[in-house]
Write a protein that binds this DNA or RNA. Structure first.
Lengths: 189, 189
DNA sequence: GTAATTTGCCTAAAAGCTTTAGGCAAATGC
DNA sequence: GCATTTGCCTAAAGCTTTTAGGCAAATTAC
């Protein structure tokens, strides 16, 4: 029998697809081996263990998100940049729920520091450059932006806003309006 | 050997404690059996399966959170109510990280409808009664509040804001200030 | 108080996931 | 063509989930 051509990258990508199909929690070394029609033990030459596989998927997702975020920010500023960037998160989570869940995986500090997570923080600050904030308010605002984006997207993903009026799309638009208004008028302490 | 006095409620409570100690994902029927010094199969008389156990823990957490939320809202309105309620979420997540994670478990619609989750939504609306919002803005605002609370707390829990200035406590206070200002001045469409 | 019934925890067993160790064959390098 | 590396394999041990069936303790009924 020939070789399947496994390597860490292919496994990671297939793992990401699997995550989107069956949920990140169900991503397992066994399931991945089945997908490649290969024995389970064979994967352990390419991936240290189950946790390693998950981490790689998380890093892939963070990378893809950062990539999309950067593309969205190019040539935009202020409110435009805000909504475009926010939509990157929301769209990505809806297109790739498993990957988005992976991106939430808690990474150990060194891994996190070397990940695309830092790019995300920088992009948020870039957005805020279109508003009139100075430190430490800029940091507070970055944290708030992150909270709203992640909070909304994850509540939406867990079904929180479905089956009730008004439409989630409408709320999302109005929440972004509100954020924009807030950033233009950030309250003094 | 005598009986251990197992029942669904004791198992659920012990499961919640276990979740706080080792993380919700690590809560397993086996681990729970060990904790009661009992054979694994014995738990299956009290709990349908692993998923059932998790769901029970989630419902317990939602109940406890609603309980605390109601206590926090009693006698408060406006900004006071907002911050007191928000702190309930944050404090609960920090005291009981495993339970808080459990509360995020995706429940099937009927279970969710019968859970304390609906109380949470009602309490958010009660808070907004201290501001001047009419439908559909009230719903948009409810969704935004939920997003900020959950988003901030979960990013904080995953270590997002640690090891960087300014202190997370300060950001949290300023984010609540900002939310209050925003609600008092909710932008027209 | 004893007998009947229910309840609670047990043993046994099958099936799936994780991980390590060691082996053979295909691919690659000289 | 031969040696080495690489890739996937078999084997095996350990853990979790879940079901089935059994015995003894607790409860209830006389």
């Amino acid at each position: 029998m020939g070789r399947a051509g496994l390597n860490a990258e292919r496994l990671t990508r297939a793992g990401a697809e699997l995550a989107d199909e069956v949920g990140f929690d169900e991503v397992t070394v066994s399931a991945l081996a089945r997908r490649f029609d290969v024995k389970v033990a064979s994967l352990y030459s390419h991936v240290r263990n189950s946790q390693d596989l998950r981490t790689r998927i998380a890093l892939l997702a963070l990378d893809e998100l950062a990539e999309r975020g950067a593309a969205a920010l190019a040539g935009r500023a202020g409110r435009d940049a805000l909504t475009a960037f926010a939509n990157v998160y929301r769209d990505y989570a809806r297109e790739h729920p498993g990957r988005y869940a992976a991106a939430q995986l808690r990474l150990d500090p060194e891994t996190a520091a070397a990940s695309a997570g830092v790019k995300h923080a920088r992009m948020m600050r870039a957005i805020l450059r279109g508003y009139d904030l100075t430190e430490p308010d800029e940091t507070h605002a970055v944290r708030m932006l992150g909270s709203v984006f992640h909070g909304y997207v994850s509540l939406e993903a867990s079904g929180g806003f479905s089956h009730s009026a008004p439409d989630s799309d409408e709320s999302w638009a109005r929440v972004l309006d509100a954020l924009d208004a807030l950033l233009r008028n950030w309250p003094a302490p």
